[in-house]
Nucleic acid binder design. Sequence first.
RNA 1: GGCGCUUUCGUCUAGCGGCUAGGACACAUGCCUCUCACGCAUGGAACACGGGUUCGAUUCCCGUAGGCGCUACCA
Length: 504
Amino acid sequence: MAERKVRVRFAPSPTGPLHIGGVRTALYNYLFARQHGGEMVFRIEDTDSTRFVPGAEEYIIESFRWLGIDFDEGVSFGGQHGPYRQSERREIYKKYVDQLLAEGKAYIAFDTPEELAAKREEIQNFQYDAQTRTMMRNSLTLPKEEVERLIAEGHQYVVRFRIEPGEDVHVQDIIRGDVKINSSILDDKVLYKSADQLPTYHLANIVDDHLMEISHVIRGEEWLPSAPLHVLLYRAFDWGDTMPQFAHLPLLLKPDGKGKLSKRDGDRLGFPVFPLEWHDPKTGDVSRGYREDGYLPQAVVNFLALLGWNPGTDQELLTMQELINQFDLTKCSKSGAKFDYVKGTWFNHEYILQTDDALLAPQFDTILRENGIEVPMERVQEVVRMMKGRVNFTKELWPLCRFFFVAPTEYDEKTVKKRWKEYSPQQMQELIGILEALPDFSQEAQEQAVNRWIEEKEYKLGDVMNAWRLTLVGEGKGPHMYEISGFLGREETIKRMRAALERL
RNA sequence: GGCGCUUUCGUCUAGCGGCUAGGACACAUGCCUCUCACGCAUGGAACACGGGUUCGAUUCCCGUAGGCGCUACCA
């Protein structure tokens, strides 16, 4: 078989913010496309006019921009296969629906939603299929003139796919192998609705994937049950030879309990399920986002990539390029993955460690400003350098670093009890003298002079340092003492020491 | 209910007939140390169950059980 150009697509429905599971699906599509030098299409599946949410499309595009997942063509990206919004492709679908109708592979059905609901009430497990369609109101049971009359009179109808029962339909899935379903259990799916003159997902999906020359359909496992229907549709159009290859990804599950990961879980357990903060236009609710929570996009990508796939080595930290090089659909796991958000925070920690201080500083600066602190960026960066190793997120820095910018006004009771000895005031008084006498206030000069003094007086290093820390920080935490005093400078250091001596 | 997918430490997973079943997160302990962290080291922790196939099954096959998904004029 001739090598086909790899073309994949991510085709969300603009019904709200992009779910983190969708992000992973898009990421896998992206990695696969890039590895094979292929193309990635961004299509909007807005065939359900009733569920459209304004702003969702823009949100999704912005999410991918932030994550560093880029598309080659599609909505907002241009390309030769447009339009890429399904609501703008009505005439195209109509043509293919008519073709199916003309060939007898589909039929028109007039049953109203109410009638169908009544049928389901009446017959348990009712399904619109070869068995039942003979008793329904459709172009198979009604005389031709009657059908024409109903349409002329403006009765709403749908077009259903006519599925022949009793055939084993095989789907070759890259991840799962051969999946077999008997066509008898499939129902005559609605392909088209006259009410809004739009197709349903199934028809639009097949037509678009074909017209857009998609070579591989990489999507969530929830689509696996309808994959045989899609195969049948490709066949009905006689597109079997260019049918894309399928790969159905396992789902992301709740961290605890049962079921698919949902927004509720994030709210309940305290983690975002959306890449960016989302403001619901209807309810006004705000949902947190990975970006706003302080995640680095590379950390999110790395974390997501390893949920359901791994390179088969012990390496867990991979750059986008490494992911592209090593990604392998055949090595994706088959079972759902519980969403381990704690591990996500670890990834962020690792990426903070790797990220240049100069890049992190502006993030922390924003937080400082929110707390009324305005200092030169070099000072911010200096604190980031000293402290970033101990946090998972830059926002965690503030409570740990406050003392760099704000002098303590009270002193932690437990630390005072433990570290402030009866001789501490005397030692601090002497230390002030030492520091004042220093020709320069470099860390090296401080260390040298202080060490000599401690040695001469035969003090204990720990006693001095812990008491000193208490005067500068207000409690027993923080980096090495000379880093703190060095950052504060001589004036501020001594000022804080004197203040402490008065208050303790 | 029907159909499909799935099942290795608490979690993410490696394993592709013979291994002391490996790694990571989390957890515990220790080391480092002027504090708190970081870091480093060590430790506990798993092949769902029952049948086969085989000299030998975590690995292959079949059941059972559990989990997940689908079952709309939603995607």
